[in-house]
Nucleic acid binder design. Sequence first.
DNA 1: TACCTATTTAGCTAGGTCGCTAAGTGATGC
DNA 2: GCATCACTTAGCGACCTAGCTAAATAGGTA
Lengths: 99, 99
Amino acid sequence: MTAATQAGYKTQARIIKALAHSTRLFIVGELSRGERCVRELTDRIDAKMPTVSRHLSVLRSAGVLEDEKRGLQVFYRLRVPCVLNFFKCIEALQTNNGK
Amino acid sequence: MTAATQAGYKTQARIIKALAHSTRLFIVGELSRGERCVRELTDRIDAKMPTVSRHLSVLRSAGVLEDEKRGLQVFYRLRVPCVLNFFKCIEALQTNNGK
DNA sequence: TACCTATTTAGCTAGGTCGCTAAGTGATGC
DNA sequence: GCATCACTTAGCGACCTAGCTAAATAGGTA
């Protein structure tokens, strides 16, 4: 494995890692139905707002989400809808798993 | 979020987490070209065999790989080729990222 | 100005992950 | 049996992550 190849895999891994958390998957699912502000997401998630805010910043810095401040609120939305296709394969894995 | 929904996301997260490492992405890429034994993979990766073996067991227990022992060697192969589609979207993310 | 609301950042602890070396397992050969 | 080869498991230290509370920031209102 060359250094350049390895660097490429590290960048990919960072993006995938951003998706590798149940709360962040929930957020992505929620935003697939339209933009939401932090408060709206927090209301639907069993965690405090600072925790949700941090999850959002992980997804944003990975390039999965983008944010827009309007007045007091910050709205988040999916930047790359294709991440959703992604889940179909994961579901296939789930159902095919013996255990 | 209901308890059942949350459990579903946790299962998904566990599978995605298995892919969220540069070495494991490399392994998946390598196995997309055919089965390999642990030694062959170790030769192509900058890590010791026990480390590679552990990465393989993470992918196997997530259902991404399956293994088969033949003589002294253990061969691994992709169990769900669709994980590869997955990477196209990740690449789109990479190239679209400002930084 | 002061105050309130929405969100982020800082600082902490608990728990998880990654790599290593050393030891264990299991099949093959002498 | 004993040695060897391919691999896995155990145990350790260094590092990272996820949640919390408390404090900081920034916009809106009076």
